[in-house]
């Protein structure tokens, strides 16, 4: 790497812990992909957007699905279009290059300025998927046999990979990454996060909200624990509904915003009944 990359300091709408900051910058310097894991709703995906925003880089997102193939991220050869064009003679079909469409990784490599590439939920794909990308992520280049061209990065993109640990990732792949586990935010960090989104929130209300929220998260047996995004929605609902902070100690309005499953509502009600007396 020839230039010293600008270092990331977090952004206004995204709270980063000092640990994560350091890890992000280490990944920058080493030119390694950063693998981020953590509970849903801990802002894994947001991190990439925040980095892109803070450093004024383009964000290129590659959403992985169970059917995603590694090659799709590099390029797609549009045979059908070429066949059509050859039929109707509307375009010069001898130039195969016109029918090569770069995928998300390809776009990130060819971006004129250093870009942020987010490979979202890599564990959704086939177990072989990460291995198929080893060379490309290592070298940040790939070869297109159809046109005999090599696509190589002008600027090594900042690569953020998120995983929900649904599947295990291959060791060879992991060796090439820098890893960070985003823990669920503690109360103080959470207060900061809420304040970023609701700067005018009363101190009282915020405290009671967080109390109620963490109490709810501690209810045993929830299938889906409410996460940050649900808390933010809930606070929004409370603000709009004009709820008195004191009321939160007695009851919990709008639980539908926090709990998404029927079973969880029943669990919660049972828990409340059991802890009343």
């Amino acid at each position: 790497m020839t230039q010293v990359p600008p270092s990331y300091r977090g952004s206004a709408d995204y709270i980063v812990t000092p640990d994560l900051l350091q890890v992000v910058n280490a990944a920058f310097v080493l030119g390694r992909p950063l693998l981020v894991r953590g509970e849903p709703g801990t802002g894994k995906t947001m991190l990439a957007a925040s980095i892109a925003g803070a450093l004024d880089m383009e964000l290129i997102t590659w959403n992985i699905k169970s059917t995603t193939k590694a090659r799709e991220g590099l390029y797609v050869y549009d045979t059908v279009q070429r066949l059509y064009d050859s039929q109707f003679g509307s375009r010069d079909v001898s130039d195969i290059g016109r029918y090569i469409k770069l995928g998300r990784l390809g776009l990130a490599l060819t971006a004129p300025l250093r870009a942020v590439l987010l490979i979202d939920e890599i564990d959704k794909a086939d177990p072989e998927f990460p291995n198929d990308l080893l060379w490309e992520l290592d070298q940040m280049s790939f070869f297109i046999p159809e046109t005999r061209e090599t696509v190589a990065a002008r600027e090594r993109p900042v690569t953020i990979i998120t995983s929900n640990a649904e599947k295990e990732l291959p060791d060879a792949f992991l060796r090439r990454c820098v890893f960070h586990y985003i823990a669920f935010p503690d109360r103080e960090t959470m207060a900061e996060i809420v304040r970023v989104h609701h700067p005018d929130l009363e101190q009282n209300l915020l405290r009671e909200c967080l109390n109620a929220f963490y109490r709810l998260r501690d209810v045993p047996g929830l299938l889906k624990k409410p996460s940050t995004s649900e808390l933010l929605d809930w606070v929004q609902a409370l603000v709009l509904g004009g709820i008195d902070p004191q009321a939160l100690t007695r009851e919990m309005p709008f639980t539908g915003v926090l709990l998404k499953r029927q079973r969880d509502h029943q669990t919660f009600e049972r828990y409340l009944r059991a802890h009343k007396g």
Binding site: D19, Q22, V23, A26, A27, V29, L30, L174, C177, V178
Partner: peptide, 30 residues
């Protein structure tokens, strides 16, 4: 990788920073 990161001063001569850095580079599973 860790050695390179240290050479580049990423640990900023603090043991805690070294701890975070080493963990991120060496350990890939929480």
């Amino acid at each position: 990788d860790l050695m390179e990161a240290l050479d580049r001063g990423l640990a900023a001569s603090s043991l805690y920073n070294f701890y975070v850095l080493a963990r991120a580079v060496l350990v890939k599973n929480e």
